[in-house]
Design a protein around this nucleic acid. Structure first.
Lengths: 192, 192
DNA sequence: CGAGGCCTTGACCGCGGTCAATGCCCGTGG
DNA sequence: CCACGGGCATTGACCGCGGTCAAGGCCTCG
């Protein structure tokens, strides 16, 4: 199971056999059942996760409704980013969309990883830049294009997620209602 | 003029007289006139900026329309975040909303700053976390609340910007048209 | 004084939200 | 094995928020 993480790392930075053994000590392998919560918003986030198998999501709850923040299928990181510097009340909740296997780590994981494999720092920096940029893109599409175009863009960007994630969650991610999403989809099916 | 930056730093990390002199060598003081462009989207971003006086903004252009990404009044940093790790084509443009004074720095600024004042690293990490979190919040409001509520939230969050930034830019930031913003504002004036 | 940019206001309309009903799939228990 | 219930997706009817188009006022600057 942990092999997935090893491949992920090796694809990006050089990691020796012994280094990887050190790294594994920083991590805890966990099975998470569908629907199981890993973080409640309002709590302090003390763990981050790397998804080996399955899919997690982070979302906010506001006046009884869920608003999707992020999906995390295989090879994605997820957690409240604030965890890294100053532990603080989290604005998001995290749970599993499918039965999943994850690697759980603590606040000091990044510092420790950097001590074992220094280039890890740059890998993470780049990751964060990409994250930042994808949030920017999401904002841009939210303020500039219609619901239909946002859906098409989502399909193009994450084709593998469409048949995997409940439509109501995708609707929430796109900032529309499940009904609207359904209409958009049925319209597209006719023309294709 | 540079005193503003000194105060900004001293408020967050310890910096000696001599260290600050070193730091200043990494920076270039620049006057920017209203409307002057500092970065065209599509170019590679090689500079970041710290605003001493005035106000900059970053925005995207898509099918002829401007979409506001960020406002940067005094004591704010602005630049294409990607600059830090791998120089790449920028998706945003940056220009001045008012006649401004800024400190311009290069890609290696962060590394050099860290060498002079190590705690700078944590200051910047925290800054980036805050940045990230504010993007998350913006996404949340875009997908969860009405145009009117977004405006009220903006007023509450950035009261000093309302009388300073052209309304059309605020409208763009909120993801609505200038006309809609005008209507929202006139409605509120009647009840207050 | 005139031109142009910015903000406002009005009339109209369509996208997408809301409410409600229906169908489908699937897990649970009789 | 079938019956039942609940969650999810879909569809229809209706409506309101916010976009669009157009006109008019105000201010600044040449």
């Amino acid at each position: 199971m942990v092999e997935g993480f090893r491949k992920y790392l090796e694809f990006r930075i050089e990691v020796s056999e012994s280094e990887f053994k050190e790294i594994v000590k920083l991590l805890e392998l966990k099975k998470v059942l569908k629907g199981e919560k890993l973080l409640h918003s309002g709590e302090t986030c003390v763990h981050g996760y790397f998804v080996l198998k399955g899919c997690l999501r982070s979302y906010c709850i506001s006046n009884g409704k869920e608003y999707m923040m992020q999906f995390a299928p295989e090879d994605w990181w997820i957690g409240d980013k604030n965890m890294l510097t100053k532990p603080d009340i989290s604005m998001v909740s995290i749970d599993a969309i499918e039965d999943s296997w994850v690697l759980q780590f603590d606040c000091d994981f990044y510092d420790n990883m950097e001590k074992i494999v220094p280039p890890f720092r740059y890998m993470m920096q780049e990751l964060q830049q990409n994250n930042y940029r994808s949030l920017q893109k999401r904002i841009m599409t939210l303020i500039s294009v219609s619901a239909e175009e946002r859906y098409l863009l989502f399909v193009k960007t994450y084709p593998s997620l469409i048949n995997r994630i409940p439509l109501q969650m995708i609707a929430s991610y796109l900032g529309i209602t499940p009904q609207s999403l359904s209409r958009v989809r049925s319209k597209k099916n006719l023309t294709s």
